[in-house]
Nucleic acid binder design. Structure first.
Length: 858
DNA sequence: ACCCATGTTCTTTTT
DNA sequence: GAACATGGGT
């Protein structure tokens, strides 16, 4: 049986009727002519212009499967680049759904992961070690902070943030310090200072054996250019390179693709080991360049701020001679109303090629608009509509709420909690950014890379052990002078004049690191709780979970946190326990992968990566994160001037156009229902300011929007009505329909108690990932906080806790927002007890008994 | 060296 | 309204 034989594709799109018919090719069946052309096209270069929702993922996966099935490539000869790990995983899954095991060995990953893989293999060429650290933005900032302080550059207005972003920009353009210095105006002292910062930053990175995010791409390009033999290996290996979201590639990424698709240099062909075989060569005795497929949509380019260059896609045909172009314009995702709105908005960008999305599926529902008096009011509308959608049969999974800035989540979360709607915030993957988690991770980083001063300085002070800045500086100086690792410097601290207490601390810590390092390489865990079942197998590296456990046990970080009185520290302790669980999960998922793989994975998680399609929760995310995703129902919130388009972008050249594309991306995520909401006042930073409707709103044809409350209605009332006022100001018709629907829902909730399930931990029957549990707790904590009246740090304003408030059907109660109502039933148990209440004015609501702002009336 | 309290500065989007 | 920096007290 050939390895290439097509396995039964199961039921991917149209397989249902394709199975009996031998003439139907399952890889082409159900594709429209343009899609089919994109799948079967061959040649050196292909540009697929894929409008939103035009089935590009399907085209890409089918194209790859087709290449393999037609024996034009082995899986190992394919490199597919996606934007997020999640997209990569999905693509891998879909290809293996088409091909089965025959798809193994492909590289499907993000730019960053692919580059890390290459760099780890070739690190020695750079004077780096394979265990190099990847600095995230926080690490880079920490390093820059030191440098700026040392150079007293803050007096010139340099901050870690502004110098960091300038360095990042330069790196994305593949401009190194020397190149920059050569072009800079040397007369300008500020410029000279910046060059100094840049230079030191690069030096420190190298000394730390660390790369920042931008280096991952840039250094790989540099590696290929400086070492043609290395480049030759990858140029020869990858025969087909496919890049998704090509409109968002920056110059460095573009250059990487260029390097990879070059023909193998003639000089290198002879040096290849193993030697090139006859069939690899073309007529000239060369190994031709890889075939390149890029997919993108210039209307969805939203990352110019981080160096994405739209010209990469616009000039593709000029760039890659012989390129074929396929346009996918038929949309399979959204209703015509949604597409018309999207087309209308994006049509205002004058600097684009004309393109119109269309569907054959019909108009669908109108877009729903709502203007709240405040973002609180807006959020309440969102929560209510989500409940309605849910009753209508939408899964929480099917629903997403978008916003421009992360800070907009606050009000939304609060209201979703009150409404007992399960949700998840994407992208604030704040877990790994928490101080205690970073502290623990610093130990692991330092074990993998004992030259990393950022990690090292972090672990010295966590937990407090009497080693302060003074001792740290002495050790660092000693380390630098001796040219040894930081770990070694600690072991030799006898050579420095430390007091006995400090000395003891340092040696104790050094000893722990020694032990952990041995364990990490598989030296054997001696006196600690050795992993049971592993008998003296010398080379087996310890599971990451065990390593972390050793560190947390020995440093007593968790115990020390628990010993404190502050309840916040309890949460921190739990986060650390969660981190162990995350590590153990990793050990199970990728046994034997090792510490480095764990660290890499943690460094490169993207916002959209924690999306879990089976979580049963509403997803909240920025519009940037939403790119590439789709939902049956989408809420775009905060559609106001200053927010979208964002104030910061208005003065930038092309800024508003990019914001408009962002709006376009948001709109085109919706399949069936689209809600556009805004508030007439918004509390930004303490006080309240008046917000104007976004100009993009006016670009949507009026007839497409069904205004539940239009901006006009709200401003005519004077803008700053209280919540109590607006609660009764809502149109009566809305309540009537709401009320009738809620009657049905009360029945269904009562009979199958799905209402309770919705509030309890998502998917309570299933295995829950460690991170999910963390999020769940965080949510509960937030709920407690929200219910407490929003004074989290004020003494005496402890979280509201109705505790064991007895409620039974028939009781009357008063709610702070909804007024008086009657309990119809109580479901759930313990802290998840839910009261179903019919309020006199607003109809039925589900309330978390423990937290809702309610008082029982008698 | 550590802890706590009081000011101060922000807020675009992210691998 | 929160993270962070700074400065005084122990």
């Amino acid at each position: 049986m050939s390895e290439f034989e097509l396995l039964d594709p199961g039921a991917p799109m149209g397989g249902a009727f394709g199975s009996g018919d031998a003439s139907v090719d399952p890889l082409l069946d159900g594709l429209n002519p343009a899609q089919e052309r994109a799948v079967i096209a061959r040649g050196p270069a292909l540009l697929i212009v894929a409008g939103a929702g035009s089935g590009k993922t399907r085209v890409l996966t089918h194209r790859i499967a087709h290449l393999i099935r037609e024996k034009e490539a082995w899986p190992s000869q394919i490199l597919a680049i996606t934007f997020t790990n999640k997209a990569a995983a999905e693509m891998r899954e879909r290809i293996s759904g088409l091909l089965g095991a025959a798809s193994e060995g492909m590289w499907v990953s993000t730019f960053h992961s692919a580059c890390v893989r290459i760099l780890r293999r070739e690190a020695e060429r750079f004077g780096y070690v394979a265990g190099f650290t990847i600095y995230d933005s926080a690490d880079s900032r920490a390093l820059l902070k030191r440098i700026i302080k040392e150079l007293d550059a803050d007096t010139y207005g340099f901050t870690p943030a502004n110098s960091g972003s300038k360095i990042s920009k330069l790196k994305n353009e593949l401009t190194d310090v020397d190149a920059y210095a050569a072009t800079a105006a040397v007369g300008d002292p500020r410029e000279r200072l910046f060059i100094e910062i840049f230079r030191m930053y690069e030096q420190e990175l190298r000394r730390a054996n660390a790369f920042d995010f931008d280096d991952l791409i840039g250094q790989t390009v540099h590696l290929f250019r400086a070492h043609p033999d290395v480049a030759a290996v990858y140029q020869r290996r990858f025969r087909h390179i496919l890049v998704d979201e090509y409109q968002d590639t920056n110059h460095a990424q573009y250059s990487l693709i260029r390097e990879l698709t070059r023909p193998v240099a003639t000089a290198e062909v002879e040096r290849l080991v193993p030697p090139a075989r006859e069939r690899e060569l073309d007529g000239l005795g060369q190994i031709p360049g890889a075939s390149l497929t890029v997919v993108g949509d210039s209307d969805q380019s939203i990352y110019a701020f981080r160096g994405a260059d739209i010209r990469n896609i616009v000039e593709f045909e000029r760039d890659f001679v012989g390129a074929e172009v396929v346009k996918l314009e038929q949309n399979y995702r959204s209703t015509q109303n949604i597409l018309t709105a999207a087309n209308a908005v994006i049509g205002n960008n004058f600097d684009r090629q004309e393109k119109n999305l269309w569907t054959s599926e019909g108009d669908g529902a109108k877009i729903v608009g709502f203007t709240g008096y405040s973002q609180h009011d807006e959020a309440r509308f969102v929560a209510e509509e989500i409940e309605d959608l849910h009753r209508e049969g939408f899964d929480y999974n099917d629903i997403a709420v978008f916003y421009r800035t992360n800070s907009q989540t606050r009000a939304l979360e609060e209201l979703l909690i009150r409404a007992a709607i399960p949700y998840r915030v994407l992208g604030g993957t704040k877990f790994y950014e928490r101080a205690e988690v970073k502290d623990a991770m610093a130990y692991l980083t330092s074990i993998a890379n004992p030259y990393d001063p950022i990690a090292w300085s972090r672990l010295l002070g966590a937990p407090k052990r009497g080693i302060g800045p003074m001792a740290e500086a002495q050790l660092a100086n000693f380390q630098e002078a001796q040219g040894i690792s930081l770990h070694e410097a600690m072991l030799r601290c006898d050579e420095l004049a430390f007091g006995p207490k400090v000395r003891g601390s340092i040696l104790g810590l050094a000893e722990l690191l020694t032990r952990a390092s041995k364990m990490a390489v598989g030296g054997g865990a001696t006196d600690v709780t050795a992993a049971p079942g592993e008998d003296a197998e010398e080379k087996t590296p310890a599971p990451v979970g065990d390593l972390l456990k050793l560190i947390l046990d020995e440093t007593e970080m968790i115990e020390k946190l628990r010993a404190k009185r502050d309840p916040q520290d309890d949460a921190r302790a739990e986060n650390l326990e969660e981190l162990i669980a995350v590590a153990r999960e990793f050990d199970v998922k990728q046994p034997g992968a090792g510490l480095l793989a764990f660290l890499t994975e943690v460094s490169l998680v993207a916002a959209a990566d924690d999306l879990d399609d089976s979580s049963g929760t509403v997803s909240l995310m920025t519009m940037h994160t939403a790119k590439g995703l789709e939902y049956r129902a989408v809420f775009i919130t905060g559609v106001e001037e200053g927010l979208i388009p964002h104030q910061m972008s208005v003065d930038e050249v092309g800024g508003v156009n990019e914001e408009r594309r962002l709006m376009y991306v948001g709109i085109t995520r919706a399949r069936e229902r689209l809600y556009i909401t805004l508030a007439s006042t918004r509390a930004t930073f303490g006080d309240i300011s008046v917000a104007m409707p976004s100009r993009f709103l006016q670009e949507i044809p009026e007839g497409l929007i069904d205004w539940r409350q239009s901006p006009g209605e709200v401003t005519s009332r004077g803008g700053t009505a209280s919540r109590a006022l607006n609660a009764s100001a809502r149109p009566g018709a809305g309540y009537a329909s709401r009320g009738s629907r809620s009657t049905e829902s009360a029945v269904s909730f009562g009979s199958n108690s799905s209402g309770a399930a919705a509030v309890s931990e998502p998917a309570s029957g299933n295995m829950q990932s460690a991170l999910d549990q963390w999020r769940e707790r965080k949510r509960a904590a937030k709920a407690a906080q929200a219910a407490g009246g929003g004074f989290p740090n004020t003494i005496g304003a402890g979280a509201r806790d109705n505790g064991d408030l007895e409620l039974t059907a028939g009781d009357r109660l008063r709610h702070d927002d909804y007024g008086e109502g009657r309990v119809t039933s109580v479901t759930g148990a313990g802290t998840k007890r839910i009261a179903h209440v019919v309020f006199d004015s607003v109809g039925e609501r589900k309330l978390l008994v423990k937290l809702a702002p309610i008082t029982k009336l008698d």
